[in-house]
Each structure stands twice: as structure tokens, then as C-alpha cells.
Design a protein around this nucleic acid. Structure first.
Length: 627
DNA sequence: GTGAAGCACT
DNA sequence: CTCTGGGTGCTTCACC
């Protein structure tokens, strides 16, 4: 933070906007009243005033970014522009608890709306101190995510964009990140009052800006009825966490290590030298300069040889080294990304792994998972599947239950397009890939071969992603003309799908955005671009976004309804993960039959559609067998 | 520290 | 004739 100009020291709250309109406002140039609330009397008084509000904004200061590991350092509150209150929370757990308890009733008051930036973080912190936040929520981060899905949603950026205000930088208090960075606990209290007070004040002001915008874009229902209730659901999922069988992973790690060393030596033997197999640069030189596996080897735009899986697979027959490199890559990937990494992320507090679900990243409306990402745990290869076995129930009385939507995106495509053949297939329980193969290859349903079905599956995926003959040709490894022919046959067999795709693009051209069944938007600013590549990318998104996004809408509603009934009925079972079309539960044995029935029904009817939704539900001793 | 390459999932 | 499947997050290398 820069020093205030000398003349401002005389009038610290002097408004200089009119003098220097080009300059952003800061805490030094803005009238504000941020107060320290550090006695029982002051806290009681604050609680009294908070209880009289229809809504208030709050923010928590903590010792760490990770909410599961962090301790509370303080809470700030704001309910009128320019005013805020900061309540320090001491390190002593009992003293801290006593202070937090004073605010428990006001947080639990269902009549008061709670405003904040990234509220899931604050809700997690408060839950650790036994505080249940009730009432309507308004998360400014998620409000902005609905309004501008592709933009960033951090408070600093929003303050500058919407309030022309530049907030106090956290680094001016705790230093640059890395070793030696302080925690908020170490900072001079007056500075924290300013920082935390400003945070609550600015977030409150952002709410005043974003709320009317949600109304204007017709996003308020989606916000109030889906995204805000979902914040509470995700808070519980994250806090719950999942149990990992560490001894299984340790065993697997040793096996992978042995196999990896073996393959590594074999690769060195064939290459006639040792080199870093993990370096695409060195690998490319060995494969294409030394072994001359492909004299027309393609290079990436940075001038290196391309050595991705696609490229290597084509060379598999040419030299044994290629298969070994692919094996080596798999072993290294599994070991470094999952087997060795996951145990390090087990919380000392409860021995479980707590992912973080991000509700404001994916521009289609999907959730994402990080630290660790539990939405990309392997399942495809035999070795990868071993990792899933390590995701286990919390104890002997529990089992893992996995419930997923069957073909959710193709069903949504059928419902949106109204294609009769597709709808009938789904509603009569006909396998959709077989149905597609029958139409495309002009054979009866009972004459579809395995290979025809496999091709049809690729076509169906292509349709959802916004198909092109080139892309399909590449996927199926067939000539482009043949792919174009197949697409033509597909559209002849499912004419309403063709019309629907055209309508999606047409609509996006008119509105400038695509939208989901719940009105979630994705802006497609290149939809009318003269640049063909950009325009075609936008057109694919015009088709994909409503489908992928509506699937996300449906799962979110199912999650909210499932969470609601599980809470009302105080089940011992817990929802613990979500993976785009799948929900995972740590299910108590006594509740499994009931849970299965309720989850199945809720998922199938979360959003009424002109197509039957199907689910697949599995139960077992680990995530692999349940899925 | 940052971008590219590569790859795990849906 | 050109270009091209949607959406994520993590690890490593290579370079600054």
C-alpha cells in the first residue's frame, strides 16, 4: 500500500474524487467509520443492532486460506454503506468460542439475510465453531458469476469495476505470499479493523449493485432458489470429507514404483541412452531425431516435437519404445497425481480428505473441484481403478453409495429438440447408441454390431459437443468425407436434432448468449465474428452450453432436495461428493434402502422434462464397486 | 513465478 | 483451402 499524500493527513476522509476524477477511490479518500468491537458490552450492542436489520454483510478473517485447517481471527460486519465493525477473536479456543457464541443467535436468525463474498468459506469457518447460519444468503461472488460467467469474480476486481474503488491489499498487511508471510493474527489490530471493515463495507455495496442486475437479467430465481441454497449443501459436503484407505494407496505406490523403474530401464535400453522421459523436449529428440520414428513428425507451435498420446498411439506398431513410453506416462501420472498426493491432503483434524467445490468457475454452470480435485479420480484403466478402491466408507456400519444420471446430456438433447425417434428410444428403454447406429447405418436395432455401436457412441458425443466432420473423422480415424456422410445420415435419422442445433445458433446470434433451462446464461461474443475459427467455437458452445448447463442445473436442484430431506430426517448417512452427473454418499447400512429410493426419485424428477430420466445406483465397500 | 505440454475425469 | 469436439484441475518441464 502506498503512503497517503501529505495533504490528506490533515483530512484523512477528504473526498478527492472531484479533484482527480481519473483516480480510483481508496480507504484514504473515502468517508468511512470502521470500529473495533472488542468488549462484551460493544459486542452485545452490535448484536442488538444486527438483529434489527433485514440483512447484514459479514466477513471472517482467519489464519489460513484452507478453511478446514484455519482458525478464526475475527469477524467483520456491515449493514450501512461506509460503516463497519470488526470483532477480534482470540487464539484461546474457549475464549474464542465464548465470543463467537454471542453472535450465534443473529447468524441463526432465519429472518435476516446474510451477505458476503464467497460465503461458503465463512459458513465453513462458523460451522467449525458450532454456528449454523440460517436465512437467505447473498453471495456477491456467485451473483457476479451468474451475471458474467466468464469473468473473474474476486472482490478487488468487482470493487474496481463497479465501485471505482481500490481496496486495501492483503499483502500490505501480511506480506507477499511464500515463506515469511504473516497471518492476520500477527497484524496490528488497527490495520485489521480497516482491512476487514472495508471488506464487509465494500461487499455490502457490491450487493447493492449486483442485486438489481440479477433482476434485470432474470437470474434472481436461479440465484435465490438454486445457487444460494447450494452454498449450504456444498459447505456440508466439504466439511464432511471422505475417508481414504492409506495402506491400500501405500501398497499401490510401491507397486507403481517398481513397475515404473522397470519400464524406465527398458526405455533407456531401446533408446541407447538415459534421458528425462518426462521432458517432452528430450523425448521428442530421442523419438524423432535419434530413432527417426516419423520423418514427418509434427511440431508444436513452440517448435518442439509433439509427443502427446494421440501422436504416440499412431506410432505404436513402429517401435516397442512407444508402448513403453505410454505405460511409463500412465504409471507416473497415477503415482504423482493421485497415489502419492492424496495421503498428504488428509486433514489432521479428522483424518479425512476435504475437497473444495468451486461454484463460480465453469462457464457452463458446472461445479469444479480442487485441492484435491476429486472429479478426475481415474476409472478407465485397470491400474487407475485401483485408486478408486481407496475411497472407502467412514466405518463398518457404512457403505459407499453412488447415484448417477444415465445419458443425462443426450436425454436433455432429446427433450429440447423434441425428436420423436430419440424420445421414443429413451422412453422405451432402447439403448441410445444402438438406436443411433441403427439410424446412421440403416440396419435394424437387432442388427447393430459392437463396432457400429462404438462408432455411434462417438457420434452422439460429437453431437453434444457441437459436431464437425473434421472432429468426427479424427475421433473415428476415418476420412473426412466419410465422417461428413455419417453426420448427414445422423441428421436424416434425427431431423429434429438438426433443427434444434440450428435454432441454438440462431438464438445465440440474436441474443448474444446461450441459456439453460433455468435461464443461466453464457455469453458468446464471437457468435457473429468474421474470424471463422472464433465463430465456429462460439457456435459449438451455443449448442453445448444449454445442454451441459441444464444438466448442471438438474443435478444442483437434486442435490438441494436430497440435502433438504436428509437434514430434515436427520439421517446418519451423508452426501460427500458430486461429479457432474453423479452423487456419492457415505451411507449408513440401516438407511441404504430408504436413501436409495429417495435419491432415485428426487434425481429423476428434479426438473420435469419431456423425457424419462434414468439413474444408476450402486452400493459397495468402496467407490469403484459402488460406481 | 509463468506458460506450455500432457493427461486424469465427465 | 483453412480450421475444428464441450467443461475442468494438477504435475512437470522449461524458461524468465
Amino acid at each position: 500500500m502506498t503512503e497517503a499524500p501529505a495533504y490528506l493527513d490533515v483530512y484523512p476522509d477528504y473526498e478527492i474524487d472531484e479533484v482527480q476524477p481519473e483516480r480510483r477511490k481508496t480507504i484514504l479518500t473515502t468517508v468511512h467509520d470502521y470500529r473495533l468491537v472488542d468488549t462484551n458490552e460493544l459486542r452485545a450492542s452490535l448484536v442488538h443492532f444486527l438483529n434489527q436489520q433485514e440483512s447484514f454483510c459479514f466477513d471472517s478473517e482467519t489464519t489460513a486460506i484452507d478453511p478446514v485447517e484455519a482458525d478464526l481471527v475475527g469477524l467483520s460486519f456491515a449493514y450501512r454503506t461506509g460503516e463497519a465493525f470488526y470483532v477480534p477473536v482470540p487464539p484461546d479456543r474457549a475464549e474464542a468460542q465464548a465470543i463467537v457464541d454471542q453472535f450465534k443467535p443473529v447468524f441463526a436468525n432465519p429472518a435476516i439475510e446474510k451477505i458476503g463474498q464467497n460465503l461458503k468459506y465463512d459458513l465453513l469457518m462458523l460451522k467449525k465453531y458450532g454456528v449454523e447460519v440460517q436465512g437467505k444468503l447473498f453471495d456477491t461472488m456467485i451473483a457476479h458469476y451468474l451475471i458474467e460467467p466468464e469473468m473473474r469474480h474476486n472482490m478487488d476486481m468487482m470493487a474496481m469495476t463497479y465501485l471505482n474503488y481500490s481496496p486495501v491489499e492483503i499483502e500490505s498487511l501480511i506480506g507477499k505470499k511464500g515463506k515469511g508471510q504473516l497471518t492476520m493474527r500477527d497484524v496490528d489490530i488497527q490495520k485489521v479493523v480497516d482491512y476487514a471493515g472495508e471488506d464487509a463495507d465494500i461487499t455490502l455495496q457490491l450487493k447493492y449493485t449486483l442485486s438489481p442486475q440479477l433482476e434485470k437479467d432474470n437470474l434472481h430465481k436461479l440465484f435465490d432458489q438454486v445457487e444460494m441454497p447450494l452454498v449450504q449443501v456444498l459447505t456440508d459436503l466439504e466439511l464432511e470429507g471422505i475417508t481414504i484407505d492409506t495402506s491400500a494407496l501405500a501398497e499401490l505406490s510401491a507397486t507403481l514404483e517398481t513397475d515404473m523403474r522397470q519400464v524406465q530401464q527398458e526405455i533407456y535400453a531401446i533408446a541407447g541412452e538415459t534421458f528425462n522421459i518426462g521432458s517432452p523436449k528430450q523425448l521428442g529428440e530421442v523419438l524423432f531425431d535419434k530413432l527417426k520414428l516419423d520423418k514427418n513428425a509434427k511440431k508444436t507451435r513452440t517448435g518442439q516435437y509433439a509427443t502427446g498420446e494421440e501422436v504416440l498411439s499412431k506410432l505404436e506398431g513402429d517401435n516397442e519404445i512407444v508402448q513403453k513410453i505410454l505405460d511409463y506416462r500412465e504409471l507416473i501420472k497415477l503415482k504423482n497425481t493421485y497415489v502419492d498426493a492424496l495421503p498428504l491432503l488428509i486433514s489432521k483434524r479428522d483424518g479425512r480428505i476435504h475437497t473444495s467445490f468451486n461454484q463460480a468457475v465453469a462457464s457452463t454452470g458446472r461445479l469444479s473441484s480442487a485441492n484435491p480435485n476429486l472429479q478426475n479420480i481415474p476409472i478407465r484403466t485397470p491400474r487407475g481403478r485401483e485408486i478408486r478402491k481407496a475411497f472407502v466408507p467412514r466405518g463398518p456400519e457404512f457403505q459407499i453409495m453412488s447415484a448417477d444420471y444415465s445419458q443425462i446430456e443426450l436425454r436433455i438433447m432429446a427433450a429440447f429438440s423434441g425428436d420423436q425417434t430419440m424420445l421414443e428410444a429413451f422412453n422405451n428403454g432402447v439403448d441410445i447408441h444402438t438406436q443411433t447406429a441403427s439410424k446412421v447405418f440403416h440396419v435394424g436395432l437387432d442388427e447393430v454390431t459392437g463396432d457400429m455401436r462404438r462408432k455411434a457412441k462417438t457420434i452422439n458425443f460429437g453431437i453434444i459437443y457441437g459436431i464437425s466432420s473434421f472432429g468426427l473423422a479424427q475421433r473415428l480415424k476415418i476420412p473426412r468425407k466419410e465422417a461428413a456422410q455419417i453426420i448427414e445420415e445422423y441428421f436424416a435419422g434425427f431431423p429434429a436434432v438438426k433443427d434444434y442445433i440450428d435454432q441454438c445458433i440462431e438464438k445465440a446470434r440474436g441474443f448474444g448468449y446461450a441459456e439453460t433451462i433455468l435461464g443461466r446464461r453464457r455469453y458468446l461474443r464471437d457468435i457473429n465474428s468474421r474470424n471463422q475459427t472464433d465463430r465456429m467455437f462460439a457456435e459449438r458452445n451455443a449448442v453445448n452450453a444449454p445442454i451441459q448447463g441444464s444438466a448442471a442445473d438438474m443435478l444442483k436442484i437434486a442435490m438441494i432436495q436430497i440435502h433438504e430431506f436428509m437434514q430434515t430426517e436427520q439421517l446418519k448417512s451423508k452426501m460427500i461428493l458430486t461429479v457432474h452427473d453423479e452423487l456419492v454418499f457415505d451411507a449408513h447400512r440401516d438407511e441404504i434402502d430408504y436413501l436409495r429410493e429417495r435419491v432415485d426419485h428426487i434425481m429423476k424428477h428434479a426438473i420435469p422434462m419431456a423425457v424419462r430420466m434414468e439413474t444408476g445406483i450402486g452400493i459397495g465397500e468402496n467407490w469403484l464397486v459402488a460406481h
